[in-house]
Write a protein that binds this DNA or RNA. Sequence first.
DNA 1: CATCGGACAGAAAACGCTTTCCACAGAGTG
DNA 2: CACTCTGTGGAAAGCGTTTTCTGTCCGATG
Lengths: 347, 347
Amino acid sequence: MPAKLADVARLAGVSPATVSRVLNGNYPVARTTADRVHRAVAELHYVVNGNARALAASSSDLIGVLVHDVADPFFGVIATGIQDAMSEGDVLAVVCNTGSSAERELRYLKLLRKQRAHAVVLTGGSVNDPGHRTALLEQITEFTSTGAHVVLCGRPPLTGDDDPVPGVIRVDFDNSEGARRLTAHLVALGHRDIGYLTGPETRTTSRLRLDGHLQALSEAGLSEERCPVVVSGFDRESGRAGVGELLRRHPGITAVVAGNDIAALGALAELRARGIGVPDQISVAGFDDLPCAFDAVPSLTTVRIPLMEAGRTSGLFALDASRAPAGGVLPIRTELMVRDSTGPVPR
Amino acid sequence: MPAKLADVARLAGVSPATVSRVLNGNYPVARTTADRVHRAVAELHYVVNGNARALAASSSDLIGVLVHDVADPFFGVIATGIQDAMSEGDVLAVVCNTGSSAERELRYLKLLRKQRAHAVVLTGGSVNDPGHRTALLEQITEFTSTGAHVVLCGRPPLTGDDDPVPGVIRVDFDNSEGARRLTAHLVALGHRDIGYLTGPETRTTSRLRLDGHLQALSEAGLSEERCPVVVSGFDRESGRAGVGELLRRHPGITAVVAGNDIAALGALAELRARGIGVPDQISVAGFDDLPCAFDAVPSLTTVRIPLMEAGRTSGLFALDASRAPAGGVLPIRTELMVRDSTGPVPR
DNA sequence: CATCGGACAGAAAACGCTTTCCACAGAGTG
DNA sequence: CACTCTGTGGAAAGCGTTTTCTGTCCGATG
């Protein structure tokens, strides 16, 4: 039903080839001819059929973006950055919600392969399961083998060892270093009894942040006894429950570090409910610096990851892999944001 | 480079037609033949070329979703609902960020038309500009004329009068009724001096909510003098500034209603900064019932819109328009959520 | 035994575009 | 003046599927 190239050609009195050339501007066409074509296009409301185009030119302008949860601002901000980069060209970014399910991740990857996506951006931590890892690597290899590029934004390397996979670009958040500095900040404030609420064990991000924390502890010569670690989650409820567990196991803690801001918010809520003053009695810190960290009461000390910017560069790499740095890895610096939820140890 | 249908056919020793039929299952194929084909598919890691398929079958499995801002949980939750519905079939939902820009909205619509999207879901309020309205209507007509369906999720009707546009389905949030009930709740608590922070004038949602508020005021016989309205915005900063403006213009107010939760959060922050107790001195209310409303301190009284569910049904309608109710409009009920940020008028 | 559906498989024509290969002017060039 | 470029435009061969339209082989039927 919609007008096709041939219709435009007929109306403009030229051949289909000429119309195509005018529209793509990759071949010299006389000014007057081009004008006639443009008029015909306007008159017929013609819009090129993307599928036919992709088929003929064997190139598509679809870019897939895989996120754990669109409703989570962490991913929302990254996605915004990516889409921002897309607005350069006539490119469609497909945001896919995996819900942290390995199975859905693979399904979407296949779907994107089916659409011959130009590139794929995988965001956030990976599901930490050996079986999934190989299946994922296989899908990704399938992608890169057709010339499509894969960008990992805030994702660990695909292979256990750090060797680069060809065609795969990484935009790397320095989770452990950020976590290390955060805990070091608490140590500097005099805290010696620091509880840690780590994220879900299935996510690699949790591990990296915990590692940074532990490193800071060992650098300060703090015993693990006085600094309990509780496996919690990245959601609010886990943070809430986790801080309760922490207090039960080690009532003397003076600081709580959560694996991310959302969990930290849960912890804040629980402490408030128990009438424990923050930061007078217990300091609290998070990670990510989501907008809500600033809005929290008291405002949350956290580690800022420039997510929007990371998303934007990831998008640019997806658009044009040649922009990627040599080595294929762009490190993203984190920044410690000291706010009101942390203070000197009470005495 | 990737395997194509013909490769599979050759390996399986059948014709391309047979492979297609096995894969689509819409034509009888002998069991043994089908098995051979499946084996060949697996061996070659074959994945159908979505573009070629869409071209030949003249049907695509792409569904466009237009949102104002992915990073805003309001839209994030709706998008999650939509994607949830998509997971039924092998369908890709393309989430596009308009940033509330009329121009980008049209650009995305055109891009989706180019991809011959199966359907489009427009979410959230509309940019309230007559010029844009006609341009939008034109794009949408172009869509529906090719058989694609358009779903409006939480969007006002396209035409000023309420008559249905063929091929357009609406999932309608009852903004004004929700706003009316919210203000009525404050009135019932004894408030007579109620300030209102309305959203951006360019968004239709702002207007609808304000209308509900004004209706409640008039039902209660409250004068507009004692109930000032300040044009603010849907973001935190606007809420913060707006409440300042409100207090300057009418220091006696005992309640503030914001156009949405985010603005209400900003208002809460400003009141806290000024040392004004909520709800002891001033009650505050929002709209939408985003997750953050529950987390606020004090927890925010607001109007709940079942966004996830609305997203899901919108998605189902996009997938299969025949599921839509007669008349093409599905009203979504809102619910008043009374929490800790509103209380009886101080005396 | 001739015939006739039914179940299955192949050949080939779309689908709407891009792009290589040619053709054909007219402008320079020797 | 014959000849080669240059700048334009057309013809036609794909791109990888789907889907009609034809068969062909069989068991069943009269």
